[in-house]
Amino acid sequence: MHAGPPGTGKTVTSASIVYHLAKMNPGQVLVVAPSNVAVDQLTEKIHKTGLKVVRLAAKSREALDSSVAFLALHNQVANASTHRDLQKLIQLKTEQGELSAQDERRYRNLVRNAERDILNAADVICTTCVGCGDPRLAKFKFRTVLIDEATQAAEPGESRACHPRRRLRLTLVCPAECMIPLVMGCKQVVFVGDHQQLGPVIMNKKAAKAGLSQSLFERLIILGNRPIRLQVQYRMHPCLSEFPSNMFYEGTLQNGVTAPERLRKNIDFPWPVADTPMFFYQNLGNEEISSSGTSFLNRLVGPCAL
Rank of each mutant, 00 (worst) to 15 (best):
K48E: 13
V145R: 04
S81T: 13
L170Q: 06
S241M: 04
A122S: 09
N25D: 12
E104Q: 08
E177G: 02
L172P: 01
C304V: 11
V173I: 11
S215M: 05
A154Y: 03
I202R: 04
K48R: 14
Y19D: 07
S16H: 06
A101K: 00
H83Y: 11
R165K: 14
D65L: 08
P6G: 10
A161R: 12
L119P: 10
A15S: 11
D103M: 00
L198P: 04
M236L: 14
V130I: 13
E287N: 06
A15N: 07
T144K: 03
V173W: 02
Y107N: 02
K187W: 06
T94Q: 15
V124N: 08
I147D: 04
F217W: 06
N255Y: 01
A208W: 00
F142C: 08
A38N: 13
E62N: 10
K52G: 07
V53A: 11
T171V: 06
R61H: 15
P303T: 06
G131P: 13
S290F: 06
A150T: 09
P181T: 00
S14R: 06
R166S: 10
H20V: 10
L297E: 07
S35D: 01
V18D: 02
P135M: 15
D117R: 13
K139N: 13
T13G: 09
A150E: 08
S295Q: 12
S292G: 14
L168D: 11
L198M: 11
V53T: 08
K265G: 10
N204K: 03
S66E: 09
D134R: 04
A101Y: 04
K209H: 07
Y19Q: 12
G185A: 12
G9E: 02
K265T: 15
G27Q: 09
N225S: 09
E158Q: 15
E95S: 01
R112A: 15
D268L: 03
G185E: 06
L56A: 01
E149Y: 01
F248A: 07
L220Y: 01
D103N: 08
K141G: 09
R143M: 04
S16I: 05
L223P: 01
L306F: 10
G97Q: 12
P5T: 05
T258L: 15
R299N: 15
N75W: 02
W271P: 08
V257D: 02
Q41G: 14
D85F: 04
G131T: 00
I222L: 07
T8S: 15
L284G: 08
A150L: 04
R264A: 14
H20D: 14
V232S: 10
Q197N: 03
P200E: 01
R229Y: 11
L300F: 11
Q87P: 04
L230S: 02
T171N: 05
N266D: 13
N286S: 14
M203G: 08
S81A: 15
I180W: 00
A72H: 05
P156A: 08
N246F: 08
R229S: 09
